[in-house]
Amino acid sequence: MRAREGAVLLVGLFLVALPLFGTDFFVGSIMTRVLMLGLVASSLVFLSSQGGMVSLANWLVFGVAGFAVGNMVATSGRGLKLGWAPWPSMVVALVICTALAWVIGSLSAKTTEIYFLMLTLTFAVIGFFFFGQVTTFSGFGGMTGIDPPAFFDDHPIRLYYGALACSALAYLSFRAIERSPFGLALQGVRDEPIRMASLGFDVPRLRTFAFTFAGFFAGLAGVLNIWWNGQIDPTSIGIGPTLDLLIIAVIGGIMHLEGAWLGAFIFVGANVYLREIPGLGSIGGFVQERVLAQERFNTVIGLLLLLIMVASPDGASGVLARIHSAIRPNASAKRRAITIDPTGGYK
């Protein structure tokens, strides 16, 4: 077993055992959120690392899952109020998200780089205004009181395990794809789409399929999130949170699948624990009851991002890879040969 698989297995076992010794707040609040954010970030890291597609629409798919479940499950308040049971609603929400990802993917698949980024951002903005302005489905006030299935509601720790199981499923699926013929073709498209077309590959179709696949997992995270949170509003799928997802992926390492969850851990950890540091909230004359307000959190996470990007362009997982390289130089030589340099070779 290689070091990477060994480390992931150890972390996995630790996470399985975590509820035995972790506090309810740490497990049920922090780590459940880390796993859900890691899950949706992994869909972005998969697209980016294997397909060369840095998408800003994954968070929209995540949000649509929440709105879909909310509309189907809620019996009062805003939205359709269909009053369906949670489990069938989950299935329908996943179908909607996967179909939406296919539509966005097929419309964006013929563009690359900055054009792809901008097109997916456009979809994200459309989604924000759609749910804000179409009161049939939500309105800017959002939806509240969305109950999870009784299975999760009775025992909140089960939602943690649900998020862990979905994360494991996503991780194993994305890793399996990496070495499958489809995954190799996708990586070929990432490196040389023109060559891949001349070799006989339908490049837009490959990209669309990858986007759809990623959309399924983004939707899965969205369903878990609405069960955990019980509410959703259009602001939560606005440009700010959309960029937060990109920040999570970059902090963790956008070319490393594990980086998705590592980035989510750093992001959520900073969000929760840095708020408690006295004095940080008063930086720049903004006194917010001696705790870190959202405005200062953005500053801190921005500085953290800057620090990580300067120290390690391939994120926190890149730092771990370097530590491993320092310990085992032979393995590092091999790793260099298979890792894309996000700086493009400029030092």
């Binding site: 190799l184 990586q187 070929g188 990432r190 490196d191 040389e192 023109i194 060559r195 891949m196 040969a337 298979i338 894309i340």
Partner: peptide, 10 residues
């Protein structure tokens, strides 16, 4: 025009 991130064999 080769897939620079993949091996010769791939």
């Amino acid at each position: 025009r080769l897939m620079a991130g993949l091996s010769v064999q791939d």
